[in-house]
């Protein structure tokens, strides 16, 4: 059976690095592991052997049992058209400017692509573990709501609003002048734009049954997945982490743990009192920061009953497989068994 591990969190917290470190650890423990990443930093991409690779899972050149894939956010919209629309409609959609714009700008596009691909790899049964680095859009929550949002969009919510009624036929263009909403839209945007958008939506509507069914499959995979929330003690990512603990139990499962990345050692909270002035300049700053971190971590754990994992702050993020493995070793409190990863320290 394939286990799926979703690594979520706000932007800039080192989520991709943590996902990669977990994947490397699992592969080293003998599990056939796939890491799916979103737009990794240059140095991390190099460490994962991603430089110059396409979007399909590829075995890592230097580590047995490790596969790596990079998310292709445009792919899902193309797949929606190819899988679920008639060939002529799919072709028309692929050329449609609004289809291309929606693929790029629909807020949940990247999240839908990630969720769709995560589900595809989980269903492929080719791996023991699939680790997914989730995209940050919507504070990370989009990943879990994207299948429903996509079905909603395709299903004609927009069409109903524009036409003010049930599913329209093409003749609606000729009756348009009768509807106040459309009169206003005409004045503001010009009739040509509205006509082209509606045509696109009518084409997209034909994919609804397929998209809705696929959405339910994706949601099943996400509900069965284990979740880790990565954060730092900076206010913005911490705020996102709190949102996950409040929202996720309704959408998926309760997170297995919250990972505080870039943590300072607790022993720094209480430094020696007698120090030279030049040393004190540095020590006062870092001990104040350590105390703040500890307070934020303690409050989070008390309020949400979360398993807390700390990964120490290092001067630079890991840049090779060894560094990623060491980062996993340095994580204190990681519930390895709960995540299904065989790991002994």
């Amino acid at each position: 059976m394939t286990r799926t591990l979703l690594v979520t969190g706000g932007g800039g917290v080192g989520k991709t690095t943590v996902a990669a470190a977990l994947g490397v650890t699992a592969a080293k423990a003998g599990m056939r592991t796939l890491v799916v990443t979103v737009d990794p930093a240059q140095r991390l991409a190099t460490a994962l052997g991603l430089a110059g690779l396409g979007h399909e899972p590829e075995p890592h050149a230097d580590l047995e049992n490790l596969w790596v894939a990079m998310l292709d956010s445009g792919a899902s919209w193309r797949a929606v058209a190819e899988r679920h629309a008639a060939p002529d409609v799919a072709e028309r959609l692929a050329r449609n400017e609004f289809f291309l714009a929606a693929a790029e700008h629909f807020p949940a596009s990247q999240a839908y692509a990630a969720a769709d691909q995560a589900a595809t790899y989980a269903q492929a049964k080719a791996w023991d573990l699939v680790v997914v680095d989730t995209p940050p859009s919507g504070g990370g929550i989009d990943f879990f709501t994207a299948p429903a949002q996509m079905a909603d969009l395709v299903g004609g919510r927009l069409l109903r609003w524009i036409t003010g009624g049930p599913l329209p036929g093409r003749r609606f263009f000729y009756e348009r002048a009768a509807r106040p909403i459309l009169r206003i839209a005409d004045t503001v945007l010009g009739s040509d734009l509205l006509e082209r958008v509606t045509e696109f939506l009518l084409d997209l509507r034909t994919t609804y049954d397929g998209v809705a069914q696929r959405g339910r499959e994706i949601e099943r995979v996400l509900k069965d997945a284990s979740i880790l929330v990565v954060t730092t003690t900076n206010p913005a990512p911490l705020h996102e982490a709190i949102r996950f603990y409040r929202t996720l139990p309704d959408l998926a499962s309760t997170p297995k743990a919250v990972v505080f990345n870039r943590s300072l050692p607790d022993s720094w909270a209480d430094p020696p009192k007698r120090l030279r002035a030049d040393v004190r300049e540095i020590v006062d700053r870092w001990s104040a920061e350590t105390v703040r971190q500890r307070d934020f971590r303690d409050e989070f754990s008390a309020r949400y009953g979360a398993t807390v994992v700390s990964i120490p702050l290092t001067p630079r993020p890991p840049t090779d497989l060894e560094g990623l493995a060491e980062l996993a070793v340095s994580a204190s409190g990681m519930p390895w068994a709960d995540l299904g990863i065989g790991f002994s320290q």
């Binding site: 929606a102 700008h105 969009l153």
Partner: peptide
């Protein structure tokens, strides 16, 4: 608002 999702 719905239109804004589709029209760039």
């Amino acid at each position: 608002d719905a239109l804004a999702t589709a029209a760039p």
